[in-house]
């Protein structure tokens, strides 16, 4: 049962990921990204990471993809530019992808990765087990991440201001 769900979700995720890469229209690409993220959230549920699946749908599918769609429609690139097949870049991408898959395949098959069945204590279902490390072990990274969000917000405000009106050259 779980194997069947894993197979279906992985095929969906890979297919929609290929859809992002191959779709001519950027809007279709964003939609494929949305469905790919939904499939990955399903995989998170299979891994008992319920809270992370929820956050993934909320942040990625809700905010990030919506922002992408907003920008695609704002820029209004007349239809889709077909992706021209550049031999050099396509070859480089293909070779790099094959090397990456082969390397990870070696690690997965020959390495010491096999750790048997998953650990019995499902961490993902307990909210307290998320919150406790965040406020003890990882307190400094949480502060740094908060500062990063502040800086990103300021950066977006500065970047999206129209230049050339307040006496500054464009």
């Amino acid at each position: 049962m779980e194997h069947l769900a894993f197979s279906c979700l992985s095929v969906l995720a890979l297919g929609f990921a290929l859809g992002v890469v191959l779709s001519k229209n950027a809007v279709n690409g964003a939609m494929c990204l949305l469905l790919c993220l939904a499939a990955i959230a399903g995989l998170f549920i299979l891994l008992h990471a319920y809270l992370l699946a929820f956050i993934l749908v909320l942040v990625y599918a809700g905010a990030v993809v919506a922002l992408f769609l907003f920008i695609v429609m704002l820029l209004d690139m007349q239809g889709g530019q077909p992706w021209r097949f550049r031999a050099m870049q396509a070859l480089a991408g293909f070779v790099a992808s094959v090397l990456l898959i082969a390397g990870l395949d070696m690690i997965a098959v020959r390495g010491q990765l096999a750790s048997g069945p998953p650990a019995p204590g499902a961490v993902g279902s307990n909210l307290k087990l998320y919150a406790y490390p965040l406020f003890t072990t990882y307190l400094l990274p949480v502060q740094v991440i908060g500062f990063l969000l502040l800086v990103a917000m300021l950066g977006v405000i500065v970047l999206s201001r129209r230049t050339g009106e307040a006496g500054r050259p464009t």
Binding site: V20, I40, W83, Q89, G93, L100, A108
Partner: peptide, 13 residues
């Protein structure tokens, strides 16, 4: 790894 490779291919192509 396969998802990462697909994304990487997209960045390059």
């Amino acid at each position: 790894a396969a998802l990462f490779a697909v994304g990487f291919l997209g960045v390059l192509v």
